[in-house]
């Protein structure tokens, strides 16, 4: 328990708080990496997931990619891309996007797949074009599951962004690796606590937005 109070003291220490390598800057960096990776993953995975969900073709792709993502060791991907592309932000970003894509893809696809076929057929029978079926029926109804996918992708990225510091980028992992090298236990623990706090914070944000999405669906 003593380490905990030392870690808290480390976080609250004004000497560690500000500056380009201070606690606040690293927190923002961490959040910024996460946001960038998740947005990039969404740009790639959502259209693809909708395509698979709407046409019901290529389901195997989704299953294989989510299985492969589970088996693929994150640290291996980060170090591999780091070796190939050199240290810096690009390597971890590629790895983070790669890891976030399957969850978002599965969410986008499952959201549409889970819709009752009769609902979609009824929309067609009412004279909606395929585009209207997708944008007015399938996408709104699939929103909760898509959000679920984005949620697990985000959490995974927050956790993994810690590894970005290992290949020379910033983020909260910096404190962790710095503490590891200098046997500075409070600093390691402080970094761990901050990452956990960010993860739980984002979990809360998603919980609220998922509830709001579900409520809108039921009243609409």
């Amino acid at each position: 328990m003593n380490y905990f109070s030392e870690a808290i003291a480390w976080i609250l220490d004004p000497a560690n708080a500000s500056g380009p390598s201070g606690v606040w800057a690293r927190c923002w960096e961490h959040l910024w990496y996460t946001l960038l990776a998740v947005v990039l993953a969404c740009v790639i995975a959502i259209p693809l997931g909708y395509l698979v969900g709407h046409t019901r073709r290529g389901r195997g792709l989704v299953v294989v990619s989510s299985g492969a993502a589970r088996a693929l060791p994150t640290l291996g991907v980060v170090t591999l891309v780091g070796l190939v592309l050199g240290i810096g932000l690009v390597a971890p970003m590629v790895a983070l996007v790669l890891l976030a894509v399957p969850s978002v893809l599965a969410g986008a696809y499952a959201g549409i797949e889970a819709i009752d076929r009769r609902t979609v057929d009824a929309a067609r029978a009412m004279g909606m074009s395929e585009w209207e079926v997708l944008t007015r029926v399938e996408i709104p109804l699939g929103l909760p599951l898509l959000l679920g996918g984005v949620r697990s992708a985000t959490l995974q990225v927050i956790a993994t962004a810690t590894l970005a510091a290992y290949v020379g980028a910033g983020g909260l992992g910096r404190f962790l690796f710095l503490g590891l090298k200098t046997q500075d236990y409070p600093q390691m623990l402080a970094s761990a606590l901050l990452v956990v706090a960010i993860a739980l914070l984002m979990e809360g944000v998603f919980e609220i937005s998922e509830r709001a999405a579900a409520r809108r669906l039921h009243t609409a």
């Binding site: 959490l155 992992g173 606590l193 956990v196 993860a199 739980l200």
Partner: peptide, 8 residues
């Protein structure tokens, strides 16, 4: 499950 592994 939300707790990142390395910190844990």
């Amino acid at each position: 499950y939300a707790i990142p592994s390395l910190p844990l």
